[in-house]
Design a protein around this nucleic acid. Structure first.
Lengths: 147, 147
DNA sequence: TTATCTGCAAAAATTTTGCACTTGG
DNA sequence: CCAAGTGCAAAATTTTTGCAGATAA
C-alpha cells in the first residue's frame, strides 16, 4: 500500500466523498508499482468498472495532486504520469532501451542541491532528477570480439 | 550566439536547405535566453515574418532536435520547451514564484550520478535535474516585522 | 435533502500530417 | 529542374469543462 492510510480515511481527512470511482482509482494507484499516465490508469480502472469515464480519472488525479497525495511527473514523452506520494522522496533512473523506471535516492546529491540553491539565494521547494541510462556492456574474462 | 556555428553553415553541415523560415526560427532560437515553447517561438518568429506557420515551427524544432542542435525540455507544465544545445551541459533552478529559469552546473553532482548509474549496472545517456525553488527570506539586522 | 461528484459530449490546447504549391541549390 | 520545404486545414492527442442527472453523507 503506497498511500499512508487507507482510502476511506484519506478521503475523510481531505474532505472528499468516498465514491466508487475514487475508491477504484485510488486502489489502482495504490497497487501499481509503475508511473502510469491517465490513459493507462483509465484502462486499469475500466477493467474493474467499465463505467468510469476518463474525465473522472483526470479530475481525480488533479484533485489528489492538489491534496499532495499524488505526484505528477512529465518524463520526456510529454504525457503526465502519476505516482502515489507517500513512500519518501526518490529520483528516477530510466532505462532508455526498455523504458523501465528504477527509483533511487542519494542524500549526498540532495545535500549538494541545498547548497546550490542557498548559494543562489533560494530555498528548495522540490526537485526532480532523472538519469537516462543504458545497460553497461557485460565484461567477460576471455576474448570475444562481438558487440 | 548559442549555436556553435552560423546558421548557413549549420544547415549545410546537416544537409538542410537554408530557407527563410528556418533562418528566422534559428535566429530567434539563437538569440533568446529563455526556454520558449512552440507557441512562444511562433509568436516571436511571426513578429519578423507573419507568414510562417506554426506547423513549420513544429517541424523545424523536431528536425533540429533530431540533429542534436536543440534540446527539448518538459518542465512540469506539460508543454515542450526548447533551448539551443551547444553551450555545455547544465541543469535548471526554477523559481516557482516567477517562473524564471536559472542555469547551473555541478561537477560533483554529475560525478555522483555516474557512480549511482554504475552501481545499478548502467551507463548514463543523459540526465536532467531541476530544482524548484523560492527566494530565501531576506535577513535584516534591525527589527521590522512585516513580510 | 443537498452539495458534491459523475458521465457525457463538446471544447480547448497541443502536436502531427496529407496535400498541393513554392523554392533553394 | 525537382527534391526538399512550406502553408493550410484537417486530424490526432491530451486535457478541461458545462451541464444535467446521480449519489454520499
Amino acid at each position: 500500500m503506497k498511500f499512508g492510510t487507507d482510502i476511506a480515511t484519506l478521503c475523510r481527512e481531505n474532505g472528499l466523498r468516498l465514491t466508487r470511482p475514487r475508491r477504484i482509482i485510488m486502489k489502482v494507484l495504490s497497487e501499481t508499482t509503475g508511473h502510469p499516465d491517465v490513459v493507462e490508469l483509465h484502462r486499469q480502472v475500466n477493467a474493474i468498472d467499465p463505467g468510469i469515464s476518463i474525465a473522472t480519472v483526470y479530475r481525480t488525479v488533479s484533485l489528489l495532486q492538489d491534496k499532495g497525495l499524488l505526484e505528477r511527473h512529465t518524463f520526456n514523452d510529454g504525457r503526465a504520469r502519476y505516482e502515489a506520494a507517500d513512500h519518501g522522496h526518490h529520483d528516477h533512473l530510466i532505462n532508455v532501451e526498455t523504458g523501465d523506471v528504477i527509483e533511487f535516492h542519494s542524500d549526498e546529491i540532495e545535500r549538494l542541491q541545498e547548497e546550490i540553491a542557498r548559494k543562489h539565494g533560494y530555498s528548495i521547494v522540490s526537485h526532480r532528477l532523472e538519469i537516462y541510462v543504458k545497460p553497461l556492456p557485460r565484461k567477460r574474462s576471455g576474448r570475444t570480439g562481438q558487440t
